[in-house]
Design a protein around this nucleic acid. Structure first.
Ligand SMILES: [Zn+2]
Length: 305
DNA sequence: CTATGATCCTGCGAGC
DNA sequence: TGCTCGCAGGATCATA
């Protein structure tokens, strides 16, 4: 569910309440939410109790919160959060009732905001929390959005920088795209090439750039690539400004409010509806177990010689 | 090495 | 009403 704009909405909502907060209690309701945590449930709870949160950071769809342990001063580890398909991070008052699909709750004390609860809820359980060591970035740039330090959690090290990251290596990106024979849609979803793009924004960016989703990436001209990159950034920026895409109550910000970018969609979820450019019906094809929505008229495969 | 499809899980709406 | 089917914002792993 959450792609870069939705995750960034969550990050910016969490940051004021979490930066400088101290974890007073940890409640794990469902251990499946810790499948990516390298240690035990006990280790998770004990390591976090008394911890002091230093920052709330994001790269692509990954969130992490560097922390100093109780009695320590060195932020060697971070809480890594990935929302998967259905995860939410919710801010609640201390003692608020257990949420539907609540998996983990962190009770925190903040010097200005007092006692709060950070709730990780996740219907489909593809999301997770984990404690992970922070490693230096290979390019010496800050780890991601919201990060001052040039570090990333070990679990995020293989994730490429995202389109809104000033340190994104565009030369590398172009080189990788030019080398891949897979459909551009699949390549856009490969988080090791560029991160943050999911099924919605891939379809929207391809519609905007008038590129057929099944075009082999290596068949794209330099002009196509430039157009696609511009569309990716434009759609992510606009979605972020509108609070992300919400089809139901599943994607919400930390206060449970929906975003309204769903009104701005041109391709995703519009099967059979008229294309906003040419009026012909939007088509839907299925591959890699997901749907691609596109206009067969505006988005032609490049002629193959 | 690259490329592809299956898989994890829960819930909802459509159709019978 | 109650059942089955298809589908859902993601990432990873096994197989060619
Ligand atoms: Zn069209």
């Amino acid at each position: 569910m959450p792609e870069l704009p939705e995750v960034e909405v969550v990050r910016s909502g969490l940051a004021p309440a979490l930066v400088d907060a101290t974890v007073s209690a940890v409640t794990v309701h469902d251990a499946r939410a810790l499948t990516r945590h390298p240690g035990s449930v006990d280790d998770f709870e004990q390591s976090l109790r008394g911890a002091h949160v230093v920052a709330v950071c994001r790269r692509g769809k990954f969130l992490w919160m560097p922390f100093t342990p109780a009695g320590g001063s060195n932020a060697a580890r971070a809480v890594v959060a990935h929302l998967g398909m259905s995860g939410q991070m919710l801010l609640r008052f201390s003692g608020a009732p257990v949420e539907r699909h609540e998996r983990i709750r962190l009770d925190i004390d903040h010097p200005h905001h007092g006692a709060l609860a950070v709730v990780f809820a996740d219907q489909r359980t593809f999301g997770s929390l984990a404690l992970d060591p922070l490693l230096p970035t290979t390019d010496a740039a800050p780890g991601g959005f919201g990060a001052d330090e040039a570090t990333v959690p070990a679990q995020v090290a293989h994730i490429a920088r995202d389109p809104l990251d000033p340190a994104l290596d565009e030369t590398r990106l172009r080189r990788l795209w030019a080398r891949k024979r897979s459909a551009i849609k699949r390549v856009l979803l490969d988080q090791t090439v560029i991160s943050g793009i999911g099924n919605i924004y891939a379809d929207e960016a391809l519609w905007g750039a008038r590129i057929h989703p099944e075009t082999p990436a290596d068949a794209l001209s330099a002009r196509h690539v430039t157009r696609l990159l511009a569309e990716i950034r434009a759609v992510l920026d606009k979605a972020l400004a509108e609070g992300g895409t919400s089809f139901d109550a599943q994607y919400v910000n930390v206060n449970g409010q929906a975003g309204y970018f769903a009104h701005s969609l041109h391709a995703y979820g519009r099967t059979g509806a008229p294309c906003h450019r040419c009026g012909r019906p939007i088509a839907r094809v299925s591959f890699m177990n997901r749907s691609s929505h596109f206009c067969p008229s505006c988005q032609r495969m490049p002629r193959t010689r």
